[in-house]
Design a protein around this nucleic acid. Structure first.
Lengths: 161, 161
DNA sequence: GATTTTTATATTGTGCACAATTAAATTGTG
DNA sequence: CACAATTTAATTGTGCACAATATAAAAATC
């Protein structure tokens, strides 16, 4: 039996589970979300909610505190649609993490802005992320290569999609 | 502004979205599932259901037609628990893709086995996967490196979890 | 061999994802 | 200006994921 990376990998079968890039992605993505749970529980947020915070924190870094972003722009950044974001943002608003309001200039647009409470979570998230990088069982170089390869894959999938 | 791979990537911010491996994984995994939709729609199954079929097809390759597998073993293979699998397998049974029955030797175990209908889907899936590999915008070598890096990451995450 | 402990699956409840549809505001055109 | 076409969110419905709990069978222990 041929093996690669210590994993059994039937050489002749193009449908072998361990040979599927799609499954490696699926499993790794969920495992990564699991790895974030300790931090997420401490902040009392979910993983997609954390991604929303990343976008809003980043907007405030460049645009100053109080920066607002529309649901559409947020969705483009995270590659999520309003069917996912609308209820998620409502839950975040209910938890006091952000405010939703209509754009006064274009009433179609719903703008979201961080609260001070959500701003206060940022240093805790940053510290945890940095400590995880320090403790990582995988080398920083491998992580770097992975990230770059994943973006290449994403571009390829977008192009053909 | 520093850039990598043509993507804006704020150099100083450890929480920049485009720098997060977790987000690259999350986005790439969903994009990959989207890329499978044409095939999945033709087979009238969902992506996790396809993964179940991969496991069962593979079992029959090595164990002969009629091979059965318990929910637990299936879950270990796909890294999913019964809370996900039980309803998913019931839906697959309702669609005539598999049969569920209790293990006569150990009544705790629910065994699942493919139907002929599900066996008939295999060549169609295989042909589609192979044609996709041929048409891929990303080189086979890059895909190979990605898959190997993802398994390394998975092992690292499992170890620390 | 009765009882405790463990194992295997199922159930319940919450929160995504995403396709499809709806509704409302804006823009473009005659 | 009227009105059709477009844009933007929200809504609806299905199917995962997963934590927590429940249930029942099998093993282990006494």
């Amino acid at each position: 039996m041929s093996k690669k990376n210590g994993l059994p990998c039937a050489g002749g079968d193009p449908l072998a589970l361990n040979r599927q890039l799609c499954f490696a992605l699926y499993a790794a993505s969920r495992a990564m979300t699991r790895a974030y749970q300790p931090m997420l529980q401490e902040l009392d947020i979910t993983y997609p909610q954390y991604l929303v915070l990343l976008v809003l924190w980043e907007s405030e870094q460049s645009g100053g505190a109080g920066a607002e972003i529309g649901v559409g722009a947020l969705g483009k950044r995270l590659m999520l649609d309003s069917g996912t974001l609308t209820p998620l943002l409502k839950r975040m608003e209910a938890r006091g993490l952000l405010i939703r309001r209509r754009d006064s200039g274009d009433e179609r647009i719903t703008l979201v802005a961080l609260t001070d409470g959500a701003r206060g979570l940022r240093p805790r998230a940053r510290d945890w992320v940095e400590s995880q990088l320090d403790d990582s069982a995988v080398s920083r170089e491998t992580l770097e290569q992975l990230r770059s390869g994943l973006w290449k894959l994403l571009e390829g999938l977008e192009r053909s999609g």
